[in-house]
Design a protein around this nucleic acid. Structure first.
Length: 332
DNA sequence: CGACTTTGACCCGCGC
DNA sequence: GCGCGGGTCAAAGTCG
């Protein structure tokens, strides 16, 4: 049984064995967290920073246009798992605004280090609807011998187009980080050249075909590589797992507390100049997945520090180039 | 009892 | 064609 997925902060401890992450790769670039922490005093402000904060993206960048096709934002984060979720959604993190989440302030944790990459492929132009591969054919075959598995042969000569993928690395002891959506595990496979299996999850919402792969890197077992595939076709769950459905206004968007806004402004002023996100060649052709939207927007809006994007060919080594891993290690 | 995980089998694409 | 590896299915088991 997988008991790691619930998002308890207790499962995420980087204070001692895993000292503060000093470098985070971001799509091929390196985000020097050590410099950040030196400025910030090394406290747990990290836990209250959203990914947009880390990028130095102020709320001006989170214009409505940016979220035209975006998922509604989540409730305030209670754990780093929720920080993780907000990173996925490219949202500022309205941290430490609700008493229930005060534990986040008492845990001397450092943030997860995340490395993002995203990709698409030639067939990624129309992925707005979940792929419905099998329909009537299958029902007709239901009466057939049920002792055999896989009675429903997939349509031949019909390549199922791959959804664009969005992969990132997270330093976490928790395998399945709670990003707010509800996932059902539908498979697990041993990964070649890795002692850690790869888990396959699917969004449980009806009609939503978003998938998620979770695996650990064999080079650094503390790094979890999560790959999202597809786009959610539903609203953000009102009461996601392990979270409380608060902080959402009727439109589904969270309303930052004044305290949060103030905190964020301060942090941006201080930390934005420290971001060192190197630009590499972006080969991604389209971004129809939800998650990379902010990256794309970022690239156009802030040429001085654009996030780099890499293709995901479906394998870990493609998602996370070895060089990137080495760089991250050397910085630690 | 529903939701979810586990796990072995199966399907498919790809390289040889 | 064959073998390998990735991805998926679905029955059975587990949990709350």
């Amino acid at each position: 049984m997988e008991k790691k997925r619930a998002n308890p902060m207790a499962n995420l401890s980087f204070s001692d064995e895993h000292p503060a992450v000093t470098a985070t790769s971001f799509g091929g670039g390196i985000f020097d967290m050590a410099a950040y922490e030196g400025i910030s005093g090394g406290d747990n402000k990290w836990a209250s920073l959203g990914f947009m904060d880390l990028l130095g993206i102020s709320q001006e960048f989170i214009a409505p246009s940016l979220f035209d096709s975006f998922q509604p934002p989540p409730p305030p984060p209670s754990t780093s798992s929720e920080l993780h979720r907000q990173q996925l959604q490219g949202l500022p993190s309205p941290a430490s605004t609700v008493p229930e989440y005060s534990e986040i302030l008492t845990n001397p944790t450092t943030p997860n280090s995340s490395s993002f990459s995203s990709s698409s492929n030639e067939a990624a132009n129309d992925i707005h609807e979940p792929t419905k591969v099998e329909d009537n054919e299958e029902e007709e075959e239901e009466d057939q011998d049920k002792t055999k598995k896989r009675l429903k042969p997939k349509k031949k000569n019909q390549k199922r187009p791959r959804e664009p993928r969005f992969a990132f690395m997270t330093k976490s002891e928790v395998d399945h980080l709670d990003d707010g959506y509800r996932w059902r595990k539908y498979g697990q496979k041993a990964v070649k050249n890795s002692p850690f299996p790869r888990s396959y999850y699917r969004c449980t919402s009806a009609g939503c075909g978003v998938k998620k792969r979770v695996e650990r890197t064999y080079e650094d077992p503390t790094i979890v590589v999560t790959t999202y595939e597809g786009k959610h076709t539903h609203m953000y769950p009102a009461t996601p797992r392990g979270t409380i459905g608060i902080g959402l206004d009727p439109s589904g968007f969270s309303v930052p507390q004044p305290q949060y806004l103030h905190q964020q402004q301060q942090q941006q002023q201080v930390h934005s100049p420290l971001l060192n996100i190197c630009t590499t060649t972006a080969t991604t052709t389209s971004f129809n997945a939800s998650f990379p939207n902010f990256l794309q927007e970022r690239r156009f809006n802030t040429p001085s520090s654009s996030a780099s994007l890499i293709r995901d060919h479906g394998l870990l080594q493609d998602i996370v180039p070895t060089q990137m891993m080495k760089e991250a290690k050397e910085e630690q």
